Computed example of a mutant assay.
Amino acid sequence: MSERPFHSRKPRFQRPSGKPGRRDHQPRRTFGDPDLVILYGWHPVAEALRNGKRTLRRLLATENSARRLSEELGMPLSIEPEIVRPDEINRLVEADAVHQGLYLEADPLPSPTPDTLSGKRVVLALDQITDPHNVGAIVRTAAAFGVEAIITTARHSPAATGVLAKSASGGLEHVPFMIVRNLADTLIALGERGFQRIGLDSSGESRLDEMSLRQPVVLVLGSEGKGLRQRTRECCDAIGRLDMPGAIKSLNVSNAAAISLFAVTKAVSADVKG
Protein backbone atom coordinates (compact mmCIF):
# COMPACT_ATOMS: atom_id res chain seq x y z
CA MET A 1 0.00 0.00 0.00
CA SER A 2 1.41 3.42 -0.93
CA GLU A 3 2.26 6.00 1.69
CA ARG A 4 0.08 9.09 2.09
CA PRO A 5 1.77 12.17 0.59
CA PHE A 6 3.51 14.42 3.03
CA HIS A 7 2.10 17.44 1.17
CA SER A 8 4.04 20.65 1.36
CA ARG A 9 4.93 20.69 5.04
CA LYS A 10 8.71 20.56 5.36
CA PRO A 11 10.51 18.96 8.32
CA ARG A 12 11.62 21.56 10.81
CA PHE A 13 14.67 19.50 11.81
CA GLN A 14 17.88 20.28 9.94
CA ARG A 15 21.34 18.87 10.22
CA PRO A 16 24.10 21.24 11.33
CA SER A 17 25.10 21.57 7.66
CA GLY A 18 21.74 23.13 6.93
CA LYS A 19 20.43 20.23 4.82
CA PRO A 20 16.96 19.09 5.82
CA GLY A 21 16.36 15.50 6.81
CA ARG A 22 14.79 13.56 3.97
CA ARG A 23 11.82 11.24 3.90
CA ASP A 24 11.82 7.72 2.54
CA HIS A 25 8.30 6.87 1.36
CA GLN A 26 8.99 3.13 1.19
CA PRO A 27 10.52 1.79 4.43
CA ARG A 28 12.40 -1.45 3.74
CA ARG A 29 12.03 -4.52 5.90
CA THR A 30 15.41 -6.04 6.67
CA PHE A 31 14.64 -8.87 9.11
CA GLY A 32 16.81 -11.94 8.68
CA ASP A 33 19.95 -10.21 7.39
CA PRO A 34 22.84 -11.62 9.49
CA ASP A 35 25.11 -8.76 8.46
CA LEU A 36 22.71 -6.07 9.64
CA VAL A 37 22.09 -4.82 13.18
CA ILE A 38 18.74 -3.19 13.95
CA LEU A 39 18.74 -0.67 16.79
CA TYR A 40 15.74 1.29 17.99
CA GLY A 41 14.92 3.40 21.01
CA TRP A 42 16.76 6.36 22.48
CA HIS A 43 19.67 4.74 24.37
CA PRO A 44 20.62 2.09 21.77
CA VAL A 45 20.56 4.57 18.89
CA ALA A 46 22.21 7.45 20.75
CA GLU A 47 25.05 5.22 21.99
CA ALA A 48 25.56 3.81 18.50
CA LEU A 49 25.83 7.33 17.08
CA ARG A 50 28.47 8.13 19.71
CA ASN A 51 30.43 5.00 18.83
CA GLY A 52 33.07 5.73 16.21
CA LYS A 53 33.59 1.98 15.65
CA ARG A 54 30.01 1.45 14.47
CA THR A 55 29.41 1.65 10.71
CA LEU A 56 25.99 3.20 10.17
CA ARG A 57 23.76 2.50 7.17
CA ARG A 58 20.41 4.19 7.69
CA LEU A 59 18.72 6.31 10.37
CA LEU A 60 14.98 6.91 10.56
CA ALA A 61 13.66 9.46 13.04
CA THR A 62 10.54 11.44 13.78
CA GLU A 63 10.95 15.21 13.71
CA ASN A 64 11.02 15.52 17.50
CA SER A 65 13.46 12.64 17.98
CA ALA A 66 15.80 13.94 15.28
CA ARG A 67 15.85 17.36 16.90
CA ARG A 68 16.47 15.83 20.32
CA LEU A 69 19.38 13.78 18.96
CA SER A 70 21.02 16.86 17.51
CA GLU A 71 20.53 18.86 20.71
CA GLU A 72 21.44 16.24 23.30
CA LEU A 73 24.37 14.58 21.54
CA GLY A 74 26.00 17.97 21.21
CA MET A 75 27.72 17.08 17.95
CA PRO A 76 26.88 16.80 14.25
CA LEU A 77 25.12 13.56 13.40
CA SER A 78 27.37 11.22 11.45
CA ILE A 79 24.46 10.09 9.28
CA GLU A 80 21.61 12.14 7.84
CA PRO A 81 18.27 11.04 9.31
CA GLU A 82 15.26 10.25 7.18
CA ILE A 83 12.34 12.13 8.75
CA VAL A 84 9.34 9.82 9.06
CA ARG A 85 6.11 9.39 10.98
CA PRO A 86 6.04 6.95 13.94
CA ASP A 87 3.87 4.44 12.07
CA GLU A 88 6.57 4.05 9.42
CA ILE A 89 8.97 2.83 12.12
CA ASN A 90 6.23 0.64 13.60
CA ARG A 91 6.21 -1.39 10.39
CA LEU A 92 9.94 -2.07 10.68
CA VAL A 93 10.14 -3.31 14.27
CA GLU A 94 8.58 -6.05 16.37
CA ALA A 95 4.99 -5.70 17.52
CA ASP A 96 4.67 -3.49 20.61
CA ALA A 97 8.32 -2.39 20.34
CA VAL A 98 9.00 0.94 22.06
CA HIS A 99 11.13 2.72 19.46
CA GLN A 100 10.74 6.31 20.76
CA GLY A 101 10.84 7.61 17.21
CA LEU A 102 14.31 6.25 16.37
CA TYR A 103 15.38 3.35 14.14
CA LEU A 104 18.93 2.65 13.01
CA GLU A 105 20.44 0.09 10.64
CA ALA A 106 24.15 -0.58 11.14
CA ASP A 107 26.91 -3.13 10.61
CA PRO A 108 27.90 -5.50 13.44
CA LEU A 109 30.80 -4.34 15.57
CA PRO A 110 34.22 -5.99 15.20
CA SER A 111 34.41 -9.23 17.16
CA PRO A 112 37.38 -10.25 19.34
CA THR A 113 38.92 -13.73 19.29
CA PRO A 114 40.40 -15.85 22.08
CA ASP A 115 43.84 -14.68 20.96
CA THR A 116 43.00 -10.97 21.03
CA LEU A 117 41.46 -10.85 24.51
CA SER A 118 43.69 -8.89 26.87
CA GLY A 119 42.69 -10.82 29.98
CA LYS A 120 42.82 -7.61 31.99
CA ARG A 121 39.06 -7.54 32.44
CA VAL A 122 36.46 -10.21 33.13
CA VAL A 123 35.15 -12.16 30.14
CA LEU A 124 31.58 -13.50 30.23
CA ALA A 125 30.43 -16.69 28.44
CA LEU A 126 26.75 -17.57 27.93
CA ASP A 127 25.86 -21.23 27.50
CA GLN A 128 22.74 -21.27 25.30
CA ILE A 129 20.82 -18.46 26.99
CA THR A 130 18.18 -17.87 24.35
CA ASP A 131 15.84 -15.16 25.68
CA PRO A 132 16.83 -11.82 24.07
CA HIS A 133 15.43 -9.82 27.00
CA ASN A 134 17.63 -11.74 29.44
CA VAL A 135 20.70 -11.50 27.24
CA GLY A 136 20.07 -7.79 26.72
CA ALA A 137 19.84 -7.22 30.46
CA ILE A 138 23.09 -9.19 30.91
CA VAL A 139 24.80 -7.00 28.28
CA ARG A 140 23.73 -3.86 30.13
CA THR A 141 25.10 -5.25 33.39
CA ALA A 142 28.29 -6.38 31.66
CA ALA A 143 28.83 -2.85 30.35
CA ALA A 144 28.39 -1.48 33.87
CA PHE A 145 31.06 -3.84 35.22
CA GLY A 146 33.51 -3.24 32.39
CA VAL A 147 33.37 -6.76 30.95
CA GLU A 148 35.82 -7.16 28.07
CA ALA A 149 33.69 -9.43 25.87
CA ILE A 150 30.66 -11.72 25.89
CA ILE A 151 31.07 -15.16 24.33
CA THR A 152 27.99 -16.77 22.79
CA THR A 153 27.42 -19.59 20.34
CA ALA A 154 26.29 -19.14 16.75
CA ARG A 155 23.34 -21.44 17.45
CA HIS A 156 20.90 -21.30 20.39
CA SER A 157 21.70 -17.64 21.09
CA PRO A 158 19.81 -14.49 20.13
CA ALA A 159 21.38 -12.10 17.63
CA ALA A 160 22.78 -8.82 18.94
CA THR A 161 20.00 -6.77 17.40
CA GLY A 162 16.35 -5.75 17.86
CA VAL A 163 14.85 -6.75 21.22
CA LEU A 164 18.23 -7.68 22.67
CA ALA A 165 19.70 -4.31 21.73
CA LYS A 166 16.73 -2.44 23.23
CA SER A 167 17.01 -4.42 26.48
CA ALA A 168 20.75 -3.71 26.60
CA SER A 169 19.95 0.03 26.58
CA GLY A 170 23.13 1.03 24.77
CA GLY A 171 25.34 -1.65 26.32
CA LEU A 172 26.05 -3.26 22.95
CA GLU A 173 28.34 -0.37 22.07
CA HIS A 174 30.59 -1.08 25.06
CA VAL A 175 30.81 -4.89 25.27
CA PRO A 176 31.68 -6.75 22.04
CA PHE A 177 30.20 -10.15 21.26
CA MET A 178 32.44 -13.07 20.37
CA ILE A 179 30.32 -15.54 18.38
CA VAL A 180 31.82 -19.04 18.41
CA ARG A 181 30.83 -22.35 16.86
CA ASN A 182 31.59 -24.45 19.94
CA LEU A 183 31.68 -23.02 23.47
CA ALA A 184 33.60 -25.97 24.94
CA ASP A 185 36.40 -25.64 22.37
CA THR A 186 36.62 -21.92 23.11
CA LEU A 187 36.85 -22.52 26.86
CA ILE A 188 39.63 -25.04 26.24
CA ALA A 189 41.48 -22.48 24.12
CA LEU A 190 41.11 -19.86 26.84
CA GLY A 191 42.37 -22.34 29.42
CA GLU A 192 45.48 -22.86 27.32
CA ARG A 193 46.01 -19.11 27.46
CA GLY A 194 45.87 -19.17 31.25
CA PHE A 195 42.27 -18.09 31.78
CA GLN A 196 40.62 -19.30 34.96
CA ARG A 197 37.25 -20.72 33.86
CA ILE A 198 34.55 -20.35 36.51
CA GLY A 199 31.09 -21.78 35.92
CA LEU A 200 28.02 -20.69 37.85
CA ASP A 201 25.52 -23.32 38.93
CA SER A 202 23.27 -23.94 41.93
CA SER A 203 25.09 -27.25 42.47
CA GLY A 204 28.52 -25.59 42.64
CA GLU A 205 30.94 -26.94 45.22
CA SER A 206 31.90 -23.51 46.56
CA ARG A 207 30.25 -20.16 47.16
CA LEU A 208 31.28 -17.79 44.41
CA ASP A 209 32.20 -15.01 46.83
CA GLU A 210 34.51 -17.36 48.77
CA MET A 211 36.44 -18.72 45.79
CA SER A 212 40.03 -17.77 45.06
CA LEU A 213 39.82 -15.92 41.77
CA ARG A 214 42.49 -14.30 39.62
CA GLN A 215 42.97 -12.69 36.25
CA PRO A 216 42.54 -13.61 33.49
CA VAL A 217 39.11 -15.09 34.22
CA VAL A 218 36.03 -16.09 32.25
CA LEU A 219 32.69 -16.44 34.04
CA VAL A 220 30.35 -18.98 32.44
CA LEU A 221 26.57 -18.74 32.88
CA GLY A 222 24.09 -21.46 31.92
CA SER A 223 20.54 -21.15 30.68
CA GLU A 224 17.58 -20.91 33.01
CA GLY A 225 16.21 -24.32 33.88
CA LYS A 226 18.92 -26.46 32.25
CA GLY A 227 21.90 -24.58 33.66
CA LEU A 228 25.36 -25.44 32.34
CA ARG A 229 25.56 -28.27 29.85
CA GLN A 230 27.70 -31.22 30.94
CA ARG A 231 30.41 -30.58 28.35
CA THR A 232 30.59 -26.93 29.41
CA ARG A 233 30.94 -27.94 33.08
CA GLU A 234 33.79 -30.27 32.18
CA CYS A 235 35.66 -27.37 30.58
CA CYS A 236 35.46 -25.19 33.70
CA ASP A 237 38.20 -25.17 36.35
CA ALA A 238 35.63 -24.76 39.14
CA ILE A 239 31.88 -24.39 39.60
CA GLY A 240 30.64 -21.73 41.98
CA ARG A 241 27.19 -21.08 43.38
CA LEU A 242 25.19 -18.20 44.80
CA ASP A 243 23.68 -18.91 48.21
CA MET A 244 20.40 -17.05 48.74
CA PRO A 245 19.44 -16.50 52.41
CA GLY A 246 15.75 -15.88 51.67
CA ALA A 247 12.80 -18.13 50.90
CA ILE A 248 13.42 -18.02 47.13
CA LYS A 249 16.68 -19.76 46.26
CA SER A 250 16.86 -19.23 42.51
CA LEU A 251 17.26 -16.04 40.49
CA ASN A 252 16.55 -14.91 36.96
CA VAL A 253 19.74 -15.43 34.95
CA SER A 254 20.20 -11.70 34.36
CA ASN A 255 19.98 -11.03 38.12
CA ALA A 256 22.38 -13.87 38.79
CA ALA A 257 24.75 -12.36 36.26
CA ALA A 258 24.74 -9.02 38.07
CA ILE A 259 25.50 -10.57 41.46
CA SER A 260 28.14 -12.88 40.00
CA LEU A 261 29.91 -10.10 38.12
CA PHE A 262 30.02 -8.03 41.29
CA ALA A 263 31.60 -10.92 43.21
CA VAL A 264 34.08 -11.81 40.46
CA THR A 265 35.21 -8.26 39.64
CA LYS A 266 35.65 -7.53 43.35
CA ALA A 267 37.72 -10.69 43.85
CA VAL A 268 40.00 -10.19 40.84
CA SER A 269 40.49 -6.51 41.73
CA ALA A 270 41.60 -7.54 45.20
CA ASP A 271 43.96 -10.10 43.65
CA VAL A 272 45.55 -7.46 41.43
CA LYS A 273 45.98 -5.02 44.33
CA GLY A 274 47.41 -7.78 46.50
Rank of each mutant, 00 (worst) to 15 (best):
R214W: 04
Q100G: 01
V217A: 10
G199R: 01
A48Q: 02
V175D: 03
W42Y: 13
A168L: 12
A165F: 13
D107S: 12
V218N: 15
V218I: 10
I79K: 01
H174S: 07
N51I: 03
A263C: 13
R68T: 04
V93H: 00
T30C: 07
A189Q: 10
G18T: 07
S212Y: 00
M178W: 05
S206G: 14
P216L: 03
K120G: 13
A46G: 09
P34R: 04
L73S: 11
N64K: 15
P112T: 09
Y103N: 13
G204P: 12
H25M: 13
G32Y: 02
P81E: 01
A142R: 06
H156A: 13
H25Q: 12
T152S: 05
D96K: 01
S202T: 01
A95T: 13
R15F: 11
F13R: 14
T130E: 15
G136T: 10
A61N: 05
P34F: 00
A137T: 15
T30S: 14
A189W: 06
P114W: 02
C235R: 09
L124W: 08
P27Q: 07
P110I: 05
R67H: 11
R12A: 06
L219R: 01
S260M: 07
V163P: 00
A270H: 09
L219H: 12
V264I: 09
F177Q: 09
I89K: 06
R50N: 04
G32S: 13
K226S: 11
Y103E: 06
